[in-house]
Design a protein around this nucleic acid. Structure first.
Length: 823
RNA sequence: GCGGCUGUGGUGAAAUCGGUAAACACGCCAGGUUCAGGGCCUGGUGAGCGCAAGCUCUUGGAGGUUCAAGUCCUCUCAGCCGCACCA
């Protein structure tokens, strides 16, 4: 057991008392009334995976402190909480242990709720939701049907990423570093009929509107922009000998004269059609090989180019040259047109390919108007712009100028046009798993795909299913669930057994909080209009793409459908860093977690909270230091003793000559009010705590210097208590009460700094000679340059540094600095 | 490869507008305390030189702009994160 700082006050005694007081008084029970400005404060809801540790709590403490601050600032604060309760871990646990997901989830929720409670983290619990409850997921189904009606939800056969361990498909966003984001297994390819959301239809808006999000972290916006991956270029059409045509996408139409070969992806439909008989066997072998080797080979970092000649040729529409068409897996079927023009003279991948297969390499862009010469070892691959080489009538022109002309020529001649391509793919939402929202679709032998009528929602997830060790979806074997009748014709039909990706659940939960008991629709539009957008969203960086992109997409769809009045869900976003301990991110699996329960027992909730906020800049990762907690405990104890008045009779507390006047005390108080307010507005909790510590230290100097517990002192104590309230709310409440506060401190008004108190009569001005610090002088505030100069010249240090020279120039920053320039 | 972030004492860090580098805290050292230990209190604590006054150096590195640079500019090194055969 680490040695700890014994409390001077007893958190165990005071903390529970104030927690019930807040609940009774309805702190954070948001009303929909408009008498105060609204503030929607939201922390990302968690997956209830078991006991929380202090790493998780950074998010909740930040959110709680900020919400409390906003209440004191006079806002009508909505600060709700819920549970992202569907998902694989609970189902996998069920397969192992036999405990049904709903049971383990409910147990975990109860544990987490208790932990939040003892940490003094409070929410609008009357708005609590869990995505696995049918009064929530029926509306997720309702929204699916809405998207189906809008043509945004659709089903198609597609080669999808399949995780063989989790036995389900994955969205592109869920392949992280080439492996399944959950279990780390390398996915394989599978052809399946799957449900998608047409997020690509929103690609441009999702990209454009990032510029509206000026209170989002830059890195999150950059990650989203990269993920959306907009590329401007052109599609060019090459005639293939015979009847076929081959369309390629290129961002560099200006390099079209450098084409010496074409490549199509193995999955490209032309691959089957254009191959000449003599090449058939070799091409089929290659297609077979790329299919079986799947992503594993393709994703290896130093993947050597492979490919096979199809036997067919294409005609370059610009120079009429005949170029061979190859099949190679370095071209992706899912991007652009699934085919490229090979320009080895300017593209490093094409260069590599051409080298390997002895395809001619031709210089096409040169950094100078003259050709560089030896094109077999071009040093300037990937040249963004330059001068065109061997490019017909464009030769010698700057490529940047020629590019639009080439596109225009292609359009005129009907062999291509300007296009924009995105990396973003449609969102695959089908999951072949049990513990999720059933997709409300019925398959009828006659009618085909039939949506479940809205009045029949929810399609209830059957509670009693058999969890199979072969990993198959239990729903497929739940006869009572699968067998149904067609809603249109009444004939026997089968239900869809896929469930939805849990990211669908979390794409709209922030709307449900605004009217959690709405019985007739997912949310009440008037209430959503009142509360949305979320004013401050707080969560981990791991959701930079997935959740935050999907939620933005949903919001735009609902906006277009007239269901909401704003098209971005989160006005300001804060991504907090992770807490590490012993060199690793705090995690249950690493065994380095610190339990909030232990912290509360040893130090009390307030110390744990303040330490989490003091640990470092909240947006950066921070290392948990067990001893650092003691420092915070000391601070709170000292403040307690000072305010409660136990300081006088302590031994060693004799006057030390550190005399602090009442005026100085009040000036520091108002400086602290000013600083803490600005720090809270800017999410700088660490420096806010530091300035509270500074003020406490000064209060101690005041008392030890014999300062009286007079009116000034009382005022300092009272305002300090209010400043402390968002950080250490229990302690603040107890002090507030002892200072005679009649209502709760949590509801009291945030103090304002008094500008008169911030003024100083005298200021310390730094004196430099030739830019080097030589002395400090005391001057009346607002003193003029001449006065400052005269005063400075009296300084022995200054005259020594001047060595008899007189200043040739004087730089004077009033109340701050005087620089005498003598050289 | 592309994009982003971060480099400041023994440690976590601060410096909000180009104006006192190292606030606050941990740790360490010394002293005090009806001081067992712990706690509490006081003082010290970037490096070097000096008895001292003081001087010099110091924000990953190298240049530059400026009266003045942790902060702005150019180049560069290291670490972390994201994306990655995206045409």
């Amino acid at each position: 057991m680490a040695r700890t700082v014994a409390p001077a006050y007893d958190p165990q005694l005071i903390e529970p008392k104030w927690r019930s007081a807040w609940k009774q008084a309805g702190l954070f029970s948001a009303s929909d009334s408009r008498d105060k400005p609204k503030f929607y404060n939201l922390v990302m809801f968690p997956y209830p995976s078991g006991p929380l540790h202090m790493g998780h709590f950074r998010n909740y403490v930040i959110g709680d402190a900020f919400a409390r601050y906003k209440v004191m600032r006079g806002f009508n604060v909505l600060n709700p909480f819920g549970w992202d309760a569907f998902g694989l871990p609970a189902e996998n646990a069920a397969i192992k242990s036999g405990i049904p997901p709903r049971v383990s989830i409910e147990r975990n929720i109860a544990i987490s709720k208790h932990q939040l409670d003892i940490m003094g983290v409070l929410y609008a619990w009357d708005r609590e939701l869990a995505t696995c409850n049918d009064d929530y997921y029926r509306w997720t189904q309702w929204l699916f049907l809405k998207l189906y009606d809008l043509g945004i939800a659709y089903k198609r056969r597609a080669a999808v990423n399949w995780c063989p361990k989790d036995n389900t498909v994955l969205a592109n966003e869920q392949i992280v570093n080439g492996v399944c984001w959950r279990c780390g297994t390398k996915p394989t390819k599978k052809e399946l009929d799957q449900w998608f959301f047409k997020i690509t239809a929103y690609a441009q808006r999702l990209l454009d509107d990032l510029s509206k999000l000026d209170r989002w972290p830059e890195r999150v916006k950059v990650m989203q922009a990269n993920w959306i991956g907009r590329s401007e270029g052109a599609e060019l059409e090459f005639a293939v000998e015979g009847q076929e045509r081959l369309r390629v996408f290129t961002t560099r139409p200006d390099t079209v004269y450098g084409v010496t070969f074409m490549v199509i992806a193995p999955e490209h439909p032309l691959a089957a059609r254009i191959v000449t008989p003599d090449r058939r066997q070799e091409v089929d072998d290659y297609l077979e090989k790329t299919r079986s080797e799947t992503e594993i080979e393709r994703l290896s970092t130093e993947h050597e180019k492979t490919g096979v000649f199809s036997g067919a040729y294409a005609i370059n529409p610009f120079n009429q040259e005949r170029v061979p068409i190859w099949v190679a897996d370095y071209v992706l079927a899912t991007y652009g047109t699934g085919a490229i023009m090979g320009v080895p003279g300017n593209d490093s991948r094409d260069f590599e390919f051409a080298k390997k297969f002895d395809i001619p390499i031709r210089e096409v862009v040169s950094p100078t108007p003259e050709p560089q010469g030896d094109p077999t070892s071009p040093m300037e691959l990937g040249l963004a712009e330059g001068f065109m080489v061997a490019s017909g009538r464009y030769t010698g022109r700057p490529s940047r100028e020629a590019m639009p002309e080439i596109i225009a020529e292609a359009e005129r001649r009907g062999v291509g046009q300007k296009t924009v391509t995105f990396r973003l793919r449609d969102w695959l939402i089908s999951r072949q798993r049990y513990w999720g929202v059933p997709i409300p679709i019925v398959y009828c032998p006659d009618e085909g795909i039939v949506p479940v009528p809205r009045e029949q929602l929810p399609v209830v997830l059957p509670p009693n299913v058999e969890f199979r060790s072969d990993g198959q979806n239990p729903l497929e074997h739940a006869e009572a669930f699968v067998k149904t009748s067609c809603p249109r014709c009444g004939k026997p039909a089968r239900r869809e057994t896929d469930t939805m990706d849990t990211f669908v659940d979390s794409s709209w939960y922030f709307l449900r909080y605004t009217s959690p008991n709405q019985l007739t629709e997912p949310f009440d539009k008037a209430k959503a209009d009142f509360w949305m957008p979320v004013d401050q969203y707080i969560g981990g960086i791991e959701h930079a793409i997935l959740h935050l992109l999907y939620s933005r997409f949903f919001m735009k769809v609902l906006f277009d459908a007239g269901m909401v009045s704003v098209d971005e869900p989160f006005n300001a976003l804060f991504s907090q860093g992770m807490i590490q301990r012993n060199g690793a991110v705090m995690a249950k699996s690493k065994g380095n977690g610190v339990a909030p329960d232990d912290m509360v027992r040893t130090y009390g909730a307030d110390t744990a909270r303040v330490y989490e906020l003091f640990i470092g800049p909240p947006e950066l990762d921070a290392e948990w230091n067990d001893r650092g907690v003691d420092g915070v405990a000391r601070f709170l104890n000292r403040l307690w003793r000072l305010v409660v008045g136990e300081e006088d009779d302590r031994p060693g507390a004799a006057a030390t000559g550190n005399s602090v006047a009442g005026e100085a005390l009040l000036r520091k108080l108002h400086e602290t009010i000013d600083k803490v307010s600005r720090d809270l507005d800017g999410f700088r909790f660490n420096t806010a705590v530091a300035s509270l510590m500074e003020m406490t230290n000064l209060m101690q100097d005041y008392i030890q210097g014999g300062g009286e517990r007079n009116h000034d002192w009382d005022s300092a104590c009272r305002e300090m208590t209010r400043l402390l309230a968002p950080f250490a709310p229990h302690l603040a409440e107890e002090l507030w009460h002892r200072l005679g506060g009649e209502t709760l401190c949590a509801f009291s008004t945030w103090p304002e700094p008094d500008p008169k108190r911030l003024q100083r009569r005298t200021v310390t001005v730094v004196v430099q000679v030739d830019g080097r610090l030589r002395d400090r002088i005391e001057l009346p505030a607002g003193a003029g340059e001449e006065e400052a100069k005269q005063s400075a010249l009296k300084s022995a240090n200054v005259s020594r540094a001047l060595e008899g020279r007189s200043p040739r120039r004087i730089v004077y920053v009033p109340d701050r600095l005087l620089n005498l320039v003598s050289r």
